[in-house]
Design a protein around this nucleic acid. Sequence first.
DNA 1: GTTTATTACTTACTTTTGGTAAGTCAAAGA
DNA 2: TCTTTGACTTACCAAAAGTAAGTAATAAAC
Lengths: 122, 122
Amino acid sequence: MENNLRKFSEVDNCPVRNVLDRIGDKWSMLVLLVLGESETLRFGELHKSIGTISQKMLTVTLKTLEADGLVKRTIYPQIPPRVEYELTERAESLLPLIHNLVDWAEKNMGDIKQARMNYAMG
Amino acid sequence: MENNLRKFSEVDNCPVRNVLDRIGDKWSMLVLLVLGESETLRFGELHKSIGTISQKMLTVTLKTLEADGLVKRTIYPQIPPRVEYELTERAESLLPLIHNLVDWAEKNMGDIKQARMNYAMG
DNA sequence: GTTTATTACTTACTTTTGGTAAGTCAAAGA
DNA sequence: TCTTTGACTTACCAAAAGTAAGTAATAAAC
């Protein structure tokens, strides 16, 4: 089987780095957030819902999340195919922490933008 | 002034994407975590402490964090130079959330590794 | 008095990661 | 027979990150 997943092997022994590589990549948290808002979503629905992700990256992000046991993939043998994605319990336990980050962000984004503007002015 | 910072302009209007781009990049959370463990750290100390980050990426990560008002940079006019970094209050308010992620990771890393092995076996 | 060490970076170059657009597969409907 | 549909691959290109060497300014060592 070819390996379409992200590489993490270098950091096997560092728990912090391990986690941050997993959920701190470009798309994983966003996919988890969106999946957390519905019972199940099909590939195309996820794609539309996120909007800015490419099909390719959605594929590899979902595969990685599935491999980590954070997403469950159910395939219905139809043509055209129907594949549904949903969060696992493990992911449900992670979701509140991500929501906390989002809340923090919403609270602080204004100030951060201001800080960034000031910084840019020199 | 040349722009050595990360680009975020495309996602100005999406708070979620906005945050995740900011702290969900490859190094920011790790730098915040390490800085959170000391009052202040010099560039070289940070570099040694993180170990796997390149000087270049440490530079741009620190600059971005500084621009966002998450890190304070103090330069002492000596030769060789002495530059100290420390968290701002805003970053201190974010730190617990990152620690929560780390705790979750430490709790779940074993299961995740197992899941990943099973997945790889097919 | 020329070399070396020190620290916080830059710069040029290479590798890795992510994005874009087109293609594939298999059946059903026009 | 040709098109449509959905979930992907694939080939190709752009952007981000890693590597290694260089820079600057001074003091200490030889």
